[in-house]
Design a protein around this nucleic acid. Structure first.
Length: 217
DNA sequence: ACATTAAGTGATT
DNA sequence: AATCACTTAATGT
């Protein structure tokens, strides 16, 4: 076994050791490779063919649905231990992606080529459960996204957004503009600015240029 | 010093 | 809650 494989095995066991059985980990180490992506990079675009499945080790990916240029809807975020099971089905039936994935926080992931993953489904119980579980999680997150758009006030949505940003970046100092927030929660920059101002007066956040310090949400 | 981009404000729908 | 039409403030060249 070469050093690269040992390294990969180490990284894999950080978040997936308890999930996958030993033989499966051996196979992943065998054909997978590790890669890093910088924040802002495009992981997958609509109509792209899937060639690999990412097993996220650290960082976060924002998955969005996009209408014609501009109009977009944030569906959910992928974090460590996650994979996009939606992409998994695309791999099996060779359909093109219906989502867009942008790196929200620098990502390190193991990429598994699509070739073997079909067989693994019948071969490994842990893989089967992992995929089904992942699918279920994504569905719940999507429902939650729909719910918040349908039933929550913009103010609540904004606070929820700030909370998830803190969770994803693991940092209470968010480096983000009002414009970007407005985009993500489907509102206008002006309205977001005003709501943020109110949150600041309420003592929940602190506003700097290009930066928001979350104190208590 | 100047241009560019982010954020704040009042009025209007 | 969105949009317009501005102003003010911060930052890069």
């Amino acid at each position: 076994m070469n050093t690269q494989e040992i390294l990969l095995r180490e990284k894999l066991s950080e978040h997936y050791a308890s999930v996958f059985e030993k033989d499966l980990i051996d196979e992943i180490v065998d054909i997978g490779y590790c890669d890093k992506l910088k924040s802002g990079e495009l992981l997958i675009d609509i109509d792209d063919e899937m060639t690999h499945i990412p097993l996220i080790l650290r960082g976060a990916v924002k998955i969005i649905r996009q209408e014609k240029e501009g109009e977009e809807l944030v569906l959910y975020y992928l974090e460590k231990g996650d994979t996009c099971a939606i992409s998994f089905v695309n791999c099996i039936n060779r359909k093109k992606s219906i989502f867009k994935g942008i790196v929200e926080k620098d990502v390190e992931a193991i990429f598994v080529p699509v070739g073997r993953i079909d067989d693994w489904l019948t071969k490994y119980r842990s893989w089967r459960y992992f995929i089904i579980d992942s699918y279920h999680e994504r569905l719940l997150e999507m429902v939650e996204s729909i719910d918040s758009h349908a039933f929550m006030s913009l103010d609540d949505r904004l606070q929820k957004y700030l909370a998830t940003q803190v969770k994803i970046t693991k940092d209470k100092n968010l480096v983000i503009t009002h414009r970007e927030i407005a985009n993500d929660i489907n509102s206008s920059r002006i309205v977001v600015s005003r709501l943020l101002k109110r949150l600041e007066i309420a003592g929940k956040i602190e506003i700097r240029r290009n930066k928001i310090i979350v104190k208590k949400i």
